[in-house]
Nucleic acid binder design. Structure first.
Length: 823
RNA sequence: GCGGAUGUGGCGGAAUUGGCAGACGCACCAGACUUAGGAUCUGGCGGCUAACACCGUGGGGGUUCGAGUCCCUUCAUCCGCACCA
């Protein structure tokens, strides 16, 4: 016998077998329970990395496990194939993004296939293919039709050195991730999706997702950032305009001593015009414009501002207060202007102290001074309203309600809710994305491309240069078109869509990826959706998962989907680390999955990565650990080959089991139970694998038994292979065949444990004295408490320990321990 | 600053409901087989001990017959958000 099993031969043999027999192809079967198991599809960067391996290994265990448990499992894979790296490669190396992308997909698919994952490759999709992005454009049209896609002027990240717009993700600490130039803000006409219309539902429905990690839900809640308060108008002294403000602290409205507008506020220029402040205001506004978003809004940067020369009137008490502009007020939250209450808001307090603005206390807490000058910091706690006219005496809570009611009754303002969530900017001035299907006609204005004209195809012959504009601007065959309304000359929108748009509905497409007339077949989606288990990195906790939820709700509203949430259960896997930090080229600590699979095989790679750590946690890569996994599979190999010629299992029980056989049978069924619970209940694959190792260890020990009982042994061996098969499917298939089976192990049912095998006649119990383990006794499992009390006193060690002590109490935990409390 | 997570042998980790701390694996040590071993098998392996005992889950305190697990407090590391009115 060879000392090492030949994984190369075995793995390619079974991969070929599965493929030839169409093992993982699925169709809707209304009579069977479905299970949609999905891993986040990758960006085709060119090579699989360990994070992918971990992601897909986890997903494959789930798929194979569910399949063996009778579910009709949909387990597809595809490519998030639009995106910047392809275009950057084009700029740098002169390779067309499409060629680069498809070559990468080819290579990654090849690598993925060597992993032996149970994908239905017939459903493979790539978001950059016209048959896919046709429907990404369809999604845009539907949103546009329902008023949820709109265009507005907006500040975007602009890299002055690359001469291009950057996505938020490409801005690292205020600088361009590629050239490290400081990113500026630039005003551009941009397309947005009105995700804010769904803010409340996106927030509320998080409660319908018990299968999501609490961490992710909290992050989404914070991101949506709902806050309740009220909005009211401040009149400007001597002018007709009013400035609306939003506050969560209506109870402090009598403490307003100034107000602040964002420097970008549209009224700033108006109100400072013709005042002595005009010049200072213009200077300050100009200065702010030059700053990056980070430099402008960071908590670290000092608060700065200037007086506008204008005054506002507090509608509650008629007081005039100066209007300032300052860096700490943001144009895109609330109304872009605030009432400032320095006594009860730390930011206002800091600002007031710096510019010597008055501070008036209107909430009296315990031991807080009533004189603003004595405050050392803003008082933000609870207390009683003071200096607030008729409202004095109210608590913070009742005061907020009372002030809002008063405002509503007197037409001053009203209760209002604000969200931190912003609309989703989907425009990209890039080539390698789905073109936004809009046409501009001189006569008709903005016209949506009719559905029948989709897809708006990306032209192939394009010149790539970093110009700050979409390369599509320079392709006249694309740019120039005719108006679908009037037929006059018109031009196309040249922005393409953010790739997050493409990934917001791909899980729907997987249900029926061949559809050419519609994005997906409703019946198929009704059968498969929602995704039962979604698995991927936590880095997508907010953006991708929020956008996908938004799309799902929208598709539900327009009656294309019947589920309101796309992902019932979410597993966020940890990172794969090497030497304590993330694998990266710059650190030189990258371990290549392809090398590992070549050296040890896919079964070993999968087994190690699942064994080393539970899935949610970060995983420290260990070459020695991989060796260990490989050794284990070789032990299993030898163990099975040693006994491959055992007789087939017989019906019914073996006549009489000796003690060793009973123990082995107990272990077999205990392992089935443990592995099942670990996979199903909590995805703890590491402990599931360790349980299989224990069973294999016991089988190894049993080989020395002079009187082995073949039926029990065979049951143990076969159970071990079945339990191992979702983790390391190739070796399990091969050994299953070698033990005389003709059907693939993939088609077998998951083993069921026999409750009666888990019954033990005798159990070991721990005896504690005052909580410390002093002895153990083996007793019949049926012993009653009284018997146990007596038995435990009789052991030598216990009676020694009890010398000279009085027993106060004896606690019996059935099946576990006896604790004698003695003093 | 706010929010979240984690902290257990030399290492990765286990202990699921308050009940034997350290399963399983790695590394290491000893032995067997062997011309040989970086293969395989057997045994050992938290600290301190000759042994008994004692100590031990980041630190301190508490609840309990009993705490890695619950409560209070504190430290460290990591992640997310960050002037959100």
């Amino acid at each position: 016998m060879q000392s090492k099993y030949d994984f190369k031969v075995i793995e390619s043999k079974w991969q070929q077998y599965w493929e030839e027999h169409g093992f993982y192809k699925v169709t809707e079967e209304p009579d069977r329970p479905k299970y949609y198991d999905l891993e986040m599809f990758p960006y085709p960067s060119g090579n699989l990395h360990m994070g992918h391996v971990r992601n897909y290994a986890i997903g494959d265990v789930v798929a194979r496990f569910k399949s063996m448990n009778g579910f009709n499992v949909l387990h597809p894979m595809g490519w998030d194939a639009f995106g910047l790296p392809a275009e950057n490669a084009a700029i740098k190396n002169g390779i067309h993004p499409a060629i680069w992308t498809y070559a990468n997909i080819e290579n990654m698919k090849r690598q993925l296939k060597t992993m032996g994952i149970s994908y239905d490759w017939d459903r493979e999709l790539a978001t950059c293919k016209p048959d896919y992005y046709k429907f990404t454009q369809w999604m845009f049209l539907k949103l546009y039709e329902h008023g949820l896609a709109y265009k507005k002027k907006s500040a975007v990240n602009w890299c002055p050195s690359c001469q291009t717009v950057l996505a938020n993700e490409q801005v690292v600490n205020g600088s361009c991730e590629r050239c490290e130039a400081v990113v500026e803000k630039k005003q551009l006409e941009q397309w947005f999706f009105k995700i804010t219309d769904y803010a409340q539902r996106l927030l509320d429905d998080l409660d319908m997702l018990p299968g999501w990690p609490e961490k992710v839900k909290i992050m989404q809640r914070n991101w949506i950032g709902r806050s309740e308060g009220c909005q009211f108008d401040m009149r400007i002294k001597g002018r007709d305009e009013v400035i609306p403000v939003f506050t969560t602290r209506a109870d402090t409205v009598f403490g307003v001593t100034y107000m602040v507008m964002a420097p970008e506020h549209p009224l700033v220029e108006e109100i400072s015009h013709n005042t002595p402040q005009a010049e200072a205001v213009q200077e300050f506004v100009a200065k702010m414009k030059l700053l990056s978003e980070i430099a402008r809004t960071s908590t670290e940067s000092e608060k700065e501002g200037v007086f506008t020369g204008a005054y506002a009137i507090n509608p509650m008490n008629g007081e005039e207060v100066p209007i300032w502009i300052a860096n700490y007020v943001l144009m895109d939250y609330g109304t872009g202007a605030i009432m400032a209450v320095p006594a009860h808001d730390q930011r206002d307090f800091d600002f007031a102290r710096k510019y010597n603005l008055p501070i008036r206390v209107v909430i009296k807490g315990e031991d807080t001074p009533l004189n603003g000058a004595e405050l050392t910091e803003a008082y933000v706690g609870g207390g009683i309203m003071v200096n607030s006219g008729d409202f004095d005496g109210n608590s913070v809570e009742s005061g907020i309600a009372a002030v809002i009611t008063y405002m509503e009754e007197n037409g001053i303002g009203q209760g209002s809710i604000n969200y931190r969530l912003r609309d989703w900017l989907i425009s990209r001035q890039r080539y390698w994305g789905a073109p936004i299907p809009i046409i501009y006609c001189q006569d008709c204005g903005m016209v949506a491309v009719p559905e029948k004209d989709l897809p708006v195809l990306l032209p192939e012959d394009v010149e790539f240069k970093p110009s700050g504009e979409s390369p599509l601007n320079y392709v006249s065959s694309f740019y120039k078109t005719t108006c679908p309304n009037c037929g006059n000359p018109a031009h196309r929108e040249t922005d393409t869509m953010d790739t997050f748009v493409c990934s917001s509905w791909y899980f729907d497409r997987f249900c029926s990826p061949q559809e050419s007339e519609q994005p997906f077949d409703k019946a198929a989606a009704d059968y498969w959706m929602p995704v039962d288990q979604y698995i991927g990195g936590v880095e997508h906790a907010i953006l991708h998962l929020m956008y996908a939820r938004f799309f799902t709700k929208f598709l539900y509203d327009i009656k294309w989907l019947s589920c309101q949430e796309p992902f019932t259960n979410l597993l966020t896997q940890g990172m794969v680390l090497k030497d304590g930090s993330k694998m990266s080229k710059s650190k030189g600590n990258v371990v290549s999955p392809e090398d590992i699979i070549n050296t040890y095989g896919a079964d070993t790679a999968r087994l190690f990565i699942l064994f080393a750590s539970p899935p949610e946690r970060d995983l420290e890569w260990s070459d020695a650990g991989v060796e260990g996994a490989y050794r284990f599979l070789n032990r299993v190999w030898r163990l099975v080959l040693d006994y491959a010629d055992l007789p087939q299992s017989q019906d019914g029980e073996a006549a009489e089991l000796d003690e060793a056989a009973r123990q082995l049978r107990f272990k077999t069924h205990a392992t089935i139970k443990k592995v099942t619970d670990d996979i199903e209940g909590r995805f703890n694959f590491n402990t599931a694998i360790s349980a299989i190792m224990e069973l294999s260890n016991m089988l190894g020990a049993y080989r020395d038994n002079p009187n082995p009982q073949p039926v029990v042994f065979r049951e143990a061996l076969e159970s071990m292979l079945l339990l191992l098969s979702p983790f390391s499917p190739h070796i399990a298939e091969e050994l299953w065949q070698l033990t005389g089976h003709t059907d693939s192990i993939t088609l077998m049912s998951w083993p069921q444990y026999d409750e009666s095998a888990l019954m033990q006649d005798e159990i070991e119990m721990v005896i504690q004295i005052n909580g410390k383990v002093r002895d153990r006794i083996t007793v019949p499992s049926t012993s009653d408490e009284e018997t146990l009390r007596q038995l435990c006193m009789q052991t030598g060690r216990v009676s020694d320990q009890l010398q000279g002590k009085t027993i106060h109490k004896v606690i019996v935990v059935p099946g576990k321990l006896i604790n004698i409390v003695a003093r």
